[in-house]
Design a protein around this nucleic acid. Structure first.
Lengths: 340, 340
DNA sequence: ATTTTTCTTGCTCGCGCGAGCAAATGTGGA
DNA sequence: TCCACATTTGCTCGCGCGAGCAAGAAAAAT
């Protein structure tokens, strides 16, 4: 009776129930739901009909317990003010799900909390942990690796030399060199670097690369200012302080930002608070190419990370049980727009 | 030897190991990790010392299997172009984690996929499913409730009359009435409504409310235009088409948007493509009060949902096993800014 | 028709933990 | 000291499934 109504919160139907209904053994039922298992088309059919009728689906907790593979990855993210995080989450969850991975999303509040979040994930016995954020410096990683078992620790969108850690990131040195050269060739000569949160061990190489490039070509190091979070509003505050401290004649002619979130904040300040024009009075560059970068308010010259390619690589790495220590860099593309 | 080095991917340490090390039974070890369990301070201490030394943490899969509570909720989200989703995810994951819930994030691509996502979640035996998105119309919900077991089905930020479904949302009728009255009192007389994706059963009441208000007061129904996704870029395209189809004298004096994502797209078009001023030539209102609404490029008059309050309510509902059918509406606050 | 090979099925055992009860231990009062 | 009672501990059994093997069935080869 396919139309038989079941109560909305029915008792658990298990493989045994289906087995009885289909006239096979429990193991045949479970085999029917595994793609690798050997099962005759006939009994597969019988099982599926019975399962459909009873509303049976295998319990992934039990499967995971028995097989020691959870098909679960934890995604630890910290920095929700940064619009790029939304893009990364979308891409990651979409592609991971396509490949059969479920995603445990963990919002890590601060550096201390990152440790707890890692423990949390380990209790779910996830097959891998993907870290996206600024809090995961070498200490946190080291602790994670020392004390707990993770099959894989993947640092995404940030490179890490840590052993036993997989990192998948854009080549910051190459990218920022390209950006610096662009800024240089466009004739800008008084740059200011707007950097994101810096920790001794977990930061991007963009600032160093830019400053070195400039030092090499002009024998002076531009000023750089640090914003303690990738938050456009916070970047606006810091940029305002910095720029208003300088006299009008002492303003930079370009602000090179560690990413788009900072660049957007800086843009807002320059246009709306200082009443200056971009790029005529001050130019701006960003990094990431978030969707808003193309917005008419910003038209940001920026650097696009090959996100899809990076995520596709990530799922490949996930599938390979041997792979657990590598540092893969990707090359993106400079996107020249109006802002510089 | 606390400093003894373990290999990074050690063998699984289980409660039995800790039991031997602590000189107690396995059950005492597990009790030590449950807050409700009765255990003497002495053996708790012994267990914790041994567990710490061995790096033991209970396996939540097994606990869940045995206790039939997973402490897991699935979060089904579809519409990643909408910046409000980032805010909701942040708030939800933060507060849920604080209350001991882990979150399975599922990116549902389209309406068909929503069904698969639901099945997926049911296989992990989540304690609740939280739906945030436009794809979860009554059909999808009905199917979910009919065919599969979910302890709770929670529709968030959208109200649902569906039985056996908990919905937590802002009172769209009240909110939009307030907005309409505001627009009315500010003297606008030629409104255009910019609506989001409409389905017969799963949409917001904002459009109907606004149109009815206007019909009641002015005996004509303003035009309304539908954008098929809450995507600023798409909204910009549609707004551009609509506005350029009209003659300059026939332009609306205010565009009332179903949410901020649409309002931002419309704003961009009006200012940058049409070269008009906001609010002088055309005013704009939004809904949600996303962080960008306060940005100098938008200064959007909008309606703020009491998101934290709503999420706090959600975790309360989660904790109560009896609660599984209610429709709770919250009242937010009109945020007048520059755009209208 | 018989044997060999291949495929399919059933089964034992274990994954790590919790519910719930029984035994053991502890506490206090008469 | 002894007993009634409360607290703590250990234990049996089961949650639902998978690995891996052995038995059975089917297909292929002789």
């Amino acid at each position: 009776m396919p139309n038989e109504k079941r109560p909305p919160f029915a008792e658990n139907v298990t493989a045994d129930d289906v087995a009885i209904a289909a006239g096979v053994s429990r193991w045949t039922v479970n085999r029917a739901f595994r793609k690798d298992a050997s099962i005759s088309p006939k009994s597969l059919q019988k099982v599926m009909v019975a399962a459909e009728r009873l509303g049976y689906l295998p319990d992934l907790r039990a499967a995971s317990l028995a097989s020691d593979r959870s098909n679960l990855v934890a995604l630890l993210i910290d920095d929700f003010a940064n619009p790029h995080k939304l893009v990364m989450m979308e891409r990651l969850t979409r592609i991971l799900r396509r490949e059969g991975w479920d995603v445990l999303l963990v919002n890590t509040l601060d550096r201390d909390d990152a440790g707890h979040a890692l423990l949390n994930a380990s209790q779910r016995r996830v097959d891998a942990v993907i870290l996206i954020g600024i809090q995961f410096d070498d200490d946190v990683l080291e602790t994670a690796l020392q004390a707990r078992r993770f099959r894989k620790l993947i640092v995404f969108a940030r490179s890490s030399e840590n052993p036993n850690t997989i990192s998948i990131a854009v080549d910051d040195v190459g990218a920022m060199t390209e950006l610096a050269r662009y800024v240089h060739q466009r004739g800008y000569r008084r740059p200011l670097f707007l950097a994101g949160p810096q920790s001794h061990s977990a930061h991007l190489l963009r600032k160093e690369t830019f400053l070195e490039y400039w030092g090499k070509h002009f024998s002076f190091q531009p000023e750089s200012v640090t914003v303690p979070a990738y938050d456009p509003a916070l970047a606006a505050t810091i940029a305002m302080e910095t720029l208003s401290r300088r006299g009008p004649s002492d303003l930079p002619d370009v602000i090179v930002c560690e990413n788009d979130a900072l660049a957007m904040g800086a843009t807002d300040v320059i246009r709306h608070k200082l009443g200056l024009e971009i790029p005529k009075d001050i130019a701006i560059t960003g990094f990431d190419d978030v969707p808003q970068a193309d917005n008419p308010n910003y038209r940001l010259t920026t650097y696009r990370q090959p996100l899809t390619e990076m995520v596709e690589y990530l799922v490949k790495v996930l599938a390979d049980p041997e792979e657990r220590d590598l540092n893969r860099l990707f090359t993106g593309r400079l996107i020249p727009r109006h802002s510089a």
